[in-house]
Design a protein around this nucleic acid. Structure first.
Length: 441
RNA sequence: GCGAAAGUAGCUCAGUGGUAGAGCUCCACCUUGCCAAGGUGGAUGUCGCGGGUUCAAGUCCCGUCUUUCGCUCCA
């Protein structure tokens, strides 16, 4: 396999309708991207897979969808207003920028050596700010949420009161977050607007020692179920200097992206920091009364926080392949797990004449009920297979003259390019079985 | 935010002051009985955007936006 570069992925994403630069006809907007027909389907498939794994497959996790705009006090309580608003100074001489709390303002500039060239410290808020109401006075300032987690914490009491859940339990949420990043780079890896898939697991203080490793294991298993190659995944434990102020312990799942190992998901032990902060700032006790033991405590939290948009980039990077076939042909193929592929089944008439195309179209329409399908009658059959390979379609069904006689079709597999002849009536069962047993080569 | 390079058709790129180009892709028809690039015909551009110099700008100058690489940043 040849080297997978970000350029190749960006190019394929644009060519095949996965991801476009935002506002492209106006010259683009830095750090913003649009998901095209293939991209949105891939993203939704990953999202749905995560949601099913977390909520449907865990009876101790419930869902939530909180609003993007929240009371500004939430961000004071969470520490985002303080920590995201780092005062910065610029060197007027060499234009370098520093955090004012990390530099001696009386000393010479460490970059150019000039003295007395710093500007006054200025605030750079990493949260996007907007206003509610027509007049933009200070009292109406609101922020676009920089993480989805706080929406979960502030609803902790609501969920406990309304859902008959008992600690330990988790709340899962998928949604957009916004960060006014100084630098955006590496395609969709770091963007100003991104989607998170978060689960906050509430447990009794002390029990976090048990749940923290449990969720680490669960989360890594998730990526294996997604068909991601194990040697492209690894753990990174935060050292003492890397730990956030609220964290007791933190591990990241890293993926080997084209630009190197980078964080994909964080599994963090957050203690009772967040609920305590909200107790303090709201004046309302964010505690839990155990209905059996009558103990009252503020639960500890184990958080799993994954980037959905990073998952999309991972899925593309992991799947991308340029395969050299016998004879020197190069086949571009995306080896998505079948349950993530934007198109699951393509139906192709071998030829257009003699009613073959119509028969194929009919079959495609019956398959729609089960899968996302695609019908393509244009060009040579081999070319159509290659087009499907390039968007990662795992199964192609070809209709030919024999189909008219005996109701059999050819089922072609993306990864092996092997074909089997089966009755049309067994298509769904055969495809479902292949999906269940799918293993990434 | 700093420094450097780049931006021409959907993609990859050629075009160094004088009529906007190629290959691939795409569309139609033909061919094709299972793995791309066979035939015929066709479509596609305010040369990123704005200003300037010039008789004339894709080409030179300035600004701006975007992308890439390196810094910086990354709760």
């Amino acid at each position: 396999m040849s080297e997978v570069t970000m350029d190749k992925i960006v190019s394929l994403c644009k060519r095949r309708g996965f991801i476009f630069q935002s506002s492209e006809i106006y010259g683009g907007l830095n750090g913003s991207y649009d998901y095209g027909p293939m991209g949105v389907q891939l993203k939704n498939n990953i999202r749905d897979f995560w949601w099913k794994e977390m909520t449907q497959m865990h009876d101790d996790i419930v869902g939530l969808d909180s609003s993007i705009l929240m009371a500004s006090k939430v961000w004071e309580a969470s520490g985002h207003v303080g920590n995201f608003s780092d005062p910065m100074v610029d060197c007027k001489e060499c234009k370098s920028r520093f955090r004012s709390d990390q530099i001696d303002l009386e000393a010479p500039c460490p970059v150019c050596g000039n003295k007395g060239t710093f500007t006054e410290p200025r605030n750079f808020n990493l949260m996007f700010e907007t206003h509610i109401g027509a007049n933009s006075d200070d009292s109406s300032v609101v922020y676009l949420r920089p993480e989805t987690a706080q929406g979960i914490y502030v609803n902790f009491k609501n969920v406990v009161a309304s859902s008959r859940v008992k600690v330990p339990f988790g709340i899962a949420q998928i949604g957009k977050s916004f960060r006014n990043e100084i630098t955006t780079k590496n395609f969709i890896f770091r963007s100003c607007e991104f989607e998170q898939m978060e689960m906050q697991f509430f447990c009794k203080p002390g029990d976090d020692e048990k749940w923290f490793p449990y969720w680490r294991e669960q989360r890594m298993a998730f990526y294996e179920k997604m068909g991601i190659r194990a040697d492209h995944l690894r753990w990174h434990q935060h050292g003492p200097d890397e730990l956030a102020f609220y964290a007791k312990d933190a591990y990241d799942i890293q993926f080997l992206f084209p630009m190197g190992w980078q964080e994909l998901e964080g599994v963090h032990s957050r203690t009772d920091y967040d609920l305590s902060q909200h107790t303090k700032f709201s004046g309302k006790q964010q505690d839990y009364l155990d209905p059996v033991t009558h103990e009252r405590y503020i639960p500890y939290v184990v958080e799993t926080s994954a980037g959905l948009t990073r998952n999309v980039l991972m899925a593309l990077s992991d799947a991308y392949d340029e395969e050299v076939l016998e004879g020197g042909d190069v086949r571009n193929v995306l080896h998505f797990h079948p349950k993530l592929a934007p198109v699951t089944v393509a139906v192709l008439p071998l030829v257009k004449k003699d009613g073959i195309a119509e028969l194929a179209k009919e079959l495609e329409e019956t398959l729609r009920e089960h899968y996302t399908t695609f019908y393509d009658k244009g060009g040579a059959i081999g070319r159509r297979y290659r087009r499907m390979d390039e968007i990662g379609t795992p199964y192609c069904v070809t209709v030919d003259y024999d189909t008219k006689e005996d109701q059999t079709v050819t089922l072609r597999f993306r990864d092996s390019m092997e074909q089997v002849r089966i009755p049309m009536s067994e298509l769904v069962a055969t495809i479902d079985k292949a999906t269940r047993e799918y293993k990434r080569k």
